[in-house]
Design a protein around this nucleic acid. Structure first.
Lengths: 301, 301
DNA sequence: TAGTATCCATGCATATTCGCATGGATTGGA
DNA sequence: TCCAATCCATGCGAATATGCATGGATACTA
């Protein structure tokens, strides 16, 4: 027995809902118009139309900007869910495209490759089974123009203007040590790190400079062990050989470690970089979009 | 630091997505057009437009009907999520409406009032805090026209044509007994119920007729206890006084009970009934829509 | 096998929506 | 206090979408 569904609740114009969502997220009609590639009058009229359709005032027009009403806030929650579903639909649609088969190479730091990217690859396998994704784990910055990779994940703003780049998230890292080692060291503040044994990464020079810039007076003497592999660096830290450094998302989830100086955070951006082919290749585009969607969520939690 | 969102993934026309969703759910463009109050050519063009927008073939045109392609099936999943969110948005929008305050009376059977309706009332309190909802738990069928209630939940198709009625779900019930009592009785089939002690409801006559119609030869002798309250009836069953009857969703979740004859199911429809005021009163409309949305889900699990 | 009831596709006139240009209003800073 | 930068609202012509009517095709039935 088939029961007739009732679609009256979704009678309102879904495009108007999208207009409301983007306007609320971006903070203004003009910004939303830019983001969606439409004009501000159109978006304004769409939001107004949604307000009359639903019989609810969504924004309070105050001065030059808009502020959400309480009802608007309540609705935004559901509209966000709509947007999430729409984004997911868009991605799987890209994946289901006919000729979406081939090869895409991503390069990322060793630590991101091992910690952050596996779920992304899993999702890509789901949405685009025909796609083969190569993961070039390397701390050296690969040259995209020489096609060593199609997409790079980097922690600094790229300077080559002929590449396409977009910041997708902000990450934070800090110093970690085993409970035993930190207990032996006693409670320390940032300056106290000068008393600690720190495991070097890619030689000690870079870390010394970064720490000195933060006002932590470490010298070469603090570094008794050094490695070029972040994975090895991390393993040494987990083994209790000294202080290691890594993203908070990774370190806080590691039961063997805890933060050495909880408040001492290094913040750095996460950039996606690709060559212009991004705009012409559906394969690369799909991987790019999937990264852009998933990475902020992976780094938020 | 605010990171610029990327809205490109929801660039496709959301109304087209709705057209696809309803078409897929209803099974044909014409049915979808009827459900949405649009015309079939419009929906056909919207679905075609979505196909070109996404670059994916969603339906295979075969004969007079449409069948989802594999890609369409994958997409439908996400579109359903969109529809769910849209429905939720529509409901909360109704709830956030300004003058949505007042009184609404629902009447339902005792068992539905106690088991099925509490989550509905909880949700209504969320979406429309200003609304006072009265729950008239009664096995007697209340007369809506005398305003004893605004909305009735009934298990049979109403016959008064001047009332608005809609079937929202199908429910199933069966006989239950305590483990101890059923063990003592031994394994029985439907006919074996004639050997059991059955607890009567609203006198024994109705149940005898219903069981005889199913080919179960029970007589007045099977009924030693009788009550007019389904709640009491159920409590007697849980206390092991005999076989009681109730919805599977309630009985299967009760650890003290198990089905007496697992395959013997009574199926009955669940109807919502209201007077015509439904179309003019936003209060009643909201309660109606919330019931229509939640009851199928509550009865499915 | 013919009839009937559906279903989807297409042409055309109309209704709606969109983008452009412009105006009024507010905020922030020199 | 004035200027520049934004932001939102509105009028108007063009682009787009919608509904109606119709045609072609298929599945079910007598």
């Amino acid at each position: 027995m088939h029961i007739r569904m009732d679609w009256t609740s979704l009678r309102f114009d879904w495009n108007h809902a999208r207009a409301f969502l983007v306007t609320a997220e971006e903070g203004s009609l003009s910004a939303a118009a830019r983001a969606l590639g439409m004009t501000q009058p159109t978006l304004g009229r769409q939001v107004s139309a949604l307000e009359t359709e639903l019989g609810v005032t969504l924004f309070e027009r105050v001065g030059r900007g808009l502020v959400l009403t309480q009802a608007g806030t309540r609705l935004l929650e559901h509209m966000r869910a709509m947007g999430e579903a729409a984004a997911a639909a868009g991605l799987t649609a890209s994946g289901q495209q006919q000729d979406l088969t081939g090869h895409v190479a991503i390069t990322a730091s060793e630590i991101y490759s091992a910690w952050l990217l596996p779920p992304v690859l899993a999702r890509l396998r789901e949405t685009a089974p025909g796609l083969s994704v190569e993961l070039v784990a390397s701390n050296a910055i690969r040259d995209l123009k020489r096609r060593e990779a199609d997409i790079a994940i980097r922690n600094a703003r790229p300077d080559q203007p002929d590449l396409i780049a977009r910041q997708v998230a902000e990450d934070a890292g800090t110093f970690y040590g085993t409970h035993a080692y930190l207990d032996a060291l006693g409670p320390i503040d940032a300056a106290g790190l000068a008393r600690a044994r720190i495991i070097g990464l890619d030689g000690a020079d870079g870390m010394i400079q970064a720490l000195n810039a933060k006002g932590v007076p470490v010298t070469q003497d603090n570094f008794v062990n050094t490695t070029n592999s972040h994975a090895v660096h991390w393993a040494l830290g987990c083994a209790g050989l000294g202080i290691c450094v890594g993203p908070c998302g990774l370190g806080d989830a590691e039961p063997r470690l805890r933060r050495a100086v909880p408040d001492l955070l290094f913040r750095y951006p996460v950039w996606l970089v690709a060559h212009r082919e991004l705009h012409t290749s559906p394969r690369i585009r799909l991987v790019w979009d999937t990264l852009a969607e998933m990475m902020p969520k992976l780094l938020k939690s």
